[in-house]
Deep mutational scan, measured.
Amino acid sequence: ELIWEQYTVTLQKDSKRGFGIAVSGGRDNPHFENGETSIVISDVLPGGPADGLLQENDRVVMVNGTPMEDVLHSFAVQQLRKSGKVAAIVVKRPRK
Rank of each mutant, 00 (worst) to 15 (best):
E1P: 15
E1V: 05
L2K: 07
L2D: 14
I3K: 10
W4I: 05
W4L: 12
E5A: 10
E5G: 07
Q6F: 10
Q6N: 15
Q6I: 09
Q6D: 15
Q6Y: 08
Y7H: 11
Y7V: 15
V9Q: 04
V9C: 05
T10N: 12
L11E: 04
L11W: 00
L11R: 01
L11H: 00
L11Y: 00
Q12T: 15
Q12H: 14
Q12V: 14
K13S: 10
K13T: 10
D14T: 15
D14Q: 04
D14M: 03
D14R: 05
K16W: 07
K16V: 13
R17D: 10
R17Q: 15
R17V: 13
R17L: 15
R17H: 15
R17A: 08
G18K: 08
F19T: 03
F19H: 04
F19S: 01
I21V: 10
A22C: 12
A22S: 15
A22R: 10
V23T: 07
V23W: 04
V23H: 00
S24H: 09
G25V: 03
G25S: 01
G26F: 02
G26T: 03
R27S: 14
D28T: 06
D28E: 10
D28I: 03
D28Q: 06
N29H: 15
N29A: 09
N29Y: 06
N29P: 03
P30W: 05
P30Y: 04
P30L: 06
H31V: 04
F32T: 13
F32M: 06
F32V: 11
E33F: 07
G35N: 15
G35P: 04
E36P: 04
E36H: 05
E36R: 06
E36S: 05
E36Y: 02
E36A: 05
E36V: 05
T37S: 14
T37D: 04
T37W: 02
S38M: 04
S38R: 07
I39F: 01
I39A: 01
I39E: 01
V40G: 04
V40H: 04
V40I: 14
I41K: 03
S42T: 15
S42G: 14
S42H: 07
S42Y: 04
D43M: 08
D43P: 01
D43R: 13
D43S: 10
V44W: 08
V44I: 08
V44G: 04
L45N: 07
P46W: 06
P46I: 10
P46C: 08
G47T: 05
G47S: 07
G47M: 05
G48V: 05
G48M: 02
G48N: 03
P49A: 07
A50V: 00
D51G: 05
D51R: 03
G52W: 02
G52C: 03
G52V: 02
G52L: 03
G52D: 06
L53G: 03
L53D: 03
L53P: 03
L53Y: 12
L54P: 02
L54Q: 01
Q55H: 09
Q55S: 08
Q55F: 11
Q55L: 12
E56P: 10
N57H: 14
D58W: 04
D58M: 02
D58C: 03
V60D: 02
V60S: 01
V60F: 02
V61Q: 08
V61K: 12
V61I: 12
V61E: 11
V63N: 01
V63S: 02
V63Y: 03
V63L: 15
V63F: 12
V63G: 00
N64V: 00
G65L: 05
G65Q: 14
G65A: 08
G65Y: 04
T66H: 09
T66D: 05
P67V: 11
P67H: 08
P67K: 13
P67M: 13
P67D: 11
P67Y: 14
P67G: 06
M68H: 01
M68C: 10
M68L: 12
M68E: 00
E69K: 15
E69Q: 14
E69H: 09
E69D: 07
D70I: 00
V71T: 05
V71Y: 02
V71A: 11
V71H: 03
L72Q: 14
L72S: 11
L72F: 14
H73S: 12
H73D: 06
H73L: 12
H73A: 11
H73E: 13
S74E: 14
S74F: 07
S74H: 12
F75V: 09
F75D: 07
F75P: 00
A76L: 03
A76E: 02
A76P: 03
V77I: 13
V77K: 14
V77Q: 09
V77R: 09
Q78E: 14
Q78W: 07
Q78C: 13
Q78G: 14
Q79W: 05
L80P: 02
L80G: 00
L80H: 02
L80T: 01
L80M: 09
R81P: 02
R81Q: 15
R81W: 13
R81G: 15
K82N: 15
K82M: 12
K82V: 08
S83D: 05
S83N: 07
S83G: 10
G84H: 13
G84M: 09
G84N: 12
K85F: 09
K85W: 07
K85L: 12
V86S: 13
V86H: 12
V86L: 13
A88H: 10
A88P: 04
I89R: 01
I89N: 00
I89L: 11
I89G: 01
V90E: 12
V90M: 10
V90H: 06
V91R: 01
V91K: 02
K92R: 10
K92N: 10
K92L: 06
R93T: 02
R93Q: 01
R93S: 03
R93I: 02
R93H: 03
P94C: 12
P94N: 12
P94Q: 11
P94D: 06
P94M: 11
R95Q: 13
R95A: 11
K96H: 10
